[in-house]
């Protein structure tokens, strides 16, 4: 479904991703783990081509998307939910959803505004409220709903639990598991190991812009060296 092959990404002079490779199969939920600055967000952005890798390639559903403009990547069915939400605070909830709207595509779950309101009832109540009036949890829901309006076949969730009450994070875990049951492929980046374990099939640990571990959470627990180096508590 998604194939990242030896990408190198930079911010100006800063070399952030250094030969990053991993792949995601259809229907899988993969968690990218690592501290801030390890390269998780840059990996997400490099997949979306918001940061263009200088070398290496990214392919999605068999198409090489390296160097495509981000909007073309999105139109191929990659849905990106950024860190820090980035909702349009001056727009109403309905208008936010309108920005994300794309036509349905084959073999992927299609979303309507009604279906999204069913999934996130809070948003329906406040449909004509501006984004800035929403709480952090509601903003996070809106970000996800907005991306789902584009009917993506693969969802990139960058730190969905950051700054959200544990009780809401638990709900979100259920939502992600529901997406998985619907056949959506999901990549999340996380710092909260507990949350990642709840939703993901597989963990990819990133440090210094490169992959340091790729396997199930069980493998992770059984690998004391990796555990101590990157996750130790």
């Amino acid at each position: 479904m998604l194939e990242i092959d030896g990408i190198h990404s930079f911010y100006g002079k800063a070399h952030i991703l250094n030969d990053m490779s991993f792949s995601v199969a259809r229907g899988e939920v993969v968690a990218l783990l690592g501290r801030n600055g390890a390269g998780k967000t840059t990996t997400m952005k490099s997949i979306m081509q918001l940061v263009r890798p200088r070398s290496g390639s990214v392919s999605f559903a068999g198409t090489d998307i390296t160097g495509l403009p981000a909007h073309k990547v999105a139109r191929l069915g990659l849905g990106y939910v950024p860190e820090e939400r980035r909702i349009f605070t001056d727009l109403t909830i309905l208008e936010n959803l309108e920005v994300g709207r794309q036509s349905p595509r084959a073999q992927t779950p299609s979303w309507t505004i009604e279906a999204l309101f069913e999934l996130f009832p809070n948003l329906e109540e406040r449909r004509n409220n501006r984004g800035k009036a929403l709480s952090g949890g509601e903003q996070q829901m809106l970000t996800i709903a907005r991306t789902l309006m584009g009917n993506p076949s693969l969802l990139l969730l960058d730190e969905p639990s950051e700054g959200i009450a544990p009780v809401i994070v638990e709900q979100m875990a259920k939502t992600i598991l529901k997406f998985k049951a619907d056949g959506l492929t999901v990549v999340i980046s996380e710092q909260n190991l507990h949350f990642a374990k709840m939703v993901a099939d597989r963990a990819v640990i990133i440090e210094g812009g490169a992959k340091k571990f790729d396997g199930t959470f069980q493998d992770l627990e059984e690998d004391p060296q990796v555990r101590d180096a990157y996750l130790s508590i």
Partner: peptide, 13 residues
């Protein structure tokens, strides 16, 4: 606190 914030305790040690 559990109801509005901490939840079921799955997210911390």
């Amino acid at each position: 606190v559990q109801e509005v914030y901490l939840g079921g305790g799955t997210l911390y040690a």
